[in-house]
Amino acid sequence: GIDPFTGEAIAKFNFNGDTQVEMSFRKGERITLLRQVDENWYEGRIPGTSRQGIFPITYVDVIKRPL
C-alpha cells in the first residue's frame, strides 16, 4: 500500500551513484522519498522496482516532502 509518510519527487537530472548505498536514476523518473538523511541527501526508492538508496537533494524536484 501507500505509506502516508513518504514523499515524492521527480528526477531533474541523471544521477549515477558511486557506491552501493547510492541509487542511480534517470531524468524524469518518479521517486518515492523515504526520509531526508541530512541537508544534502534523501533516501528513496523507485516504485515498482527493487532500487533503493540515497541521492543528492539537488538532483530532484520535490513534489511532497517525506514526514
Results as ranks from 00 to 15, higher is better:
residue 60 V to L: 05
residue 16 N to K: 11
residue 13 F to R: 10
residue 33 L to K: 02
residue 3 D to E: 12
residue 9 A to S: 04
residue 50 S to L: 11
residue 21 V to Q: 13
residue 52 Q to W: 10
residue 59 Y to W: 06
residue 52 Q to P: 01
residue 13 F to W: 12
residue 50 S to K: 11
residue 42 Y to C: 07
residue 49 T to S: 09
residue 51 R to E: 03
residue 21 V to I: 13
residue 58 T to P: 08
residue 61 D to F: 14
residue 40 N to L: 14
residue 32 T to I: 15
residue 62 V to R: 04
residue 18 D to A: 14
residue 44 G to T: 01
residue 35 R to M: 07
residue 56 P to T: 02
residue 30 R to M: 11
residue 15 F to V: 02
residue 49 T to Q: 05
residue 12 K to Y: 03
residue 25 F to L: 06
residue 9 A to D: 00
residue 16 N to R: 10
residue 63 I to Y: 07
residue 50 S to Q: 11
residue 51 R to N: 03
residue 50 S to I: 11
residue 29 E to L: 02
residue 58 T to E: 14
residue 39 E to R: 09
residue 5 F to E: 11
residue 50 S to H: 09
residue 53 G to W: 01
residue 34 L to T: 08
residue 55 F to Y: 00
residue 20 Q to R: 11
residue 51 R to H: 04
residue 42 Y to K: 00
residue 24 S to A: 08
residue 20 Q to F: 12
residue 7 G to N: 08
residue 48 G to P: 06
residue 4 P to G: 12
residue 19 T to L: 10
residue 65 R to A: 15
residue 67 L to T: 15
residue 12 K to V: 09
residue 13 F to V: 11
residue 22 E to Y: 10
residue 9 A to N: 01
residue 24 S to R: 05
residue 14 N to Y: 05
residue 55 F to A: 00
residue 37 V to S: 03
residue 45 R to Q: 10
residue 12 K to P: 00
residue 60 V to M: 03
residue 66 P to L: 09
residue 33 L to M: 06
residue 54 I to A: 03
residue 47 P to E: 14
residue 24 S to F: 04
residue 26 R to A: 13
residue 56 P to D: 04
residue 39 E to T: 09
residue 50 S to R: 11
residue 52 Q to V: 09
residue 29 E to T: 05
residue 47 P to M: 09
residue 53 G to H: 00
residue 22 E to D: 06
residue 57 I to W: 04
residue 33 L to H: 05
residue 35 R to L: 07
residue 47 P to D: 15
residue 42 Y to P: 01
residue 63 I to F: 07
residue 32 T to M: 08
residue 61 D to W: 15
residue 23 M to E: 01
residue 37 V to C: 11
residue 41 W to I: 05
residue 14 N to A: 09
residue 49 T to W: 02
residue 8 E to C: 15
residue 26 R to N: 11
residue 23 M to I: 07
residue 38 D to H: 08
residue 62 V to I: 08
residue 61 D to S: 09
residue 67 L to P: 15
residue 12 K to Q: 06
residue 48 G to C: 10
residue 1 G to C: 15
residue 55 F to L: 07
residue 46 I to Y: 01
residue 35 R to W: 11
residue 61 D to N: 11
residue 26 R to C: 15
residue 52 Q to E: 08
residue 1 G to S: 12
residue 2 I to D: 15
residue 12 K to E: 03
residue 25 F to N: 01
residue 4 P to A: 13
residue 48 G to L: 07
residue 12 K to W: 04
residue 48 G to E: 07
residue 49 T to G: 06
residue 32 T to A: 08
residue 38 D to Q: 06
residue 2 I to K: 13
residue 36 Q to N: 06
residue 61 D to V: 14
residue 63 I to A: 05
residue 44 G to Q: 00
residue 28 G to A: 03
residue 17 G to Q: 05
residue 17 G to N: 04
residue 48 G to I: 02
residue 8 E to W: 13
residue 4 P to Q: 13
residue 46 I to C: 02
residue 43 E to S: 07
residue 36 Q to D: 04
residue 53 G to Q: 01
residue 25 F to Y: 01
residue 58 T to D: 13
residue 37 V to W: 08
residue 66 P to E: 11
residue 40 N to C: 15
residue 14 N to M: 06
residue 20 Q to A: 14
residue 27 K to V: 13
residue 28 G to N: 06
residue 5 F to I: 09
residue 47 P to W: 08
residue 10 I to W: 06
residue 57 I to M: 09
residue 33 L to T: 02
residue 31 I to M: 04
residue 45 R to E: 08
residue 45 R to W: 09
residue 55 F to C: 01
residue 25 F to S: 01
residue 66 P to A: 07
residue 61 D to Q: 15
residue 26 R to Q: 15
residue 59 Y to K: 07
residue 27 K to H: 12
residue 52 Q to D: 03
residue 35 R to I: 05
residue 37 V to M: 08
residue 56 P to Y: 02
residue 18 D to R: 12
residue 26 R to W: 09
residue 37 V to A: 04
residue 14 N to S: 09
residue 51 R to V: 04
residue 62 V to T: 08
residue 15 F to H: 05
residue 11 A to E: 00
residue 38 D to E: 07
residue 65 R to G: 15
residue 38 D to F: 08
residue 65 R to P: 15
residue 27 K to N: 05
residue 55 F to I: 12
residue 27 K to P: 05
residue 6 T to C: 15
residue 54 I to E: 04
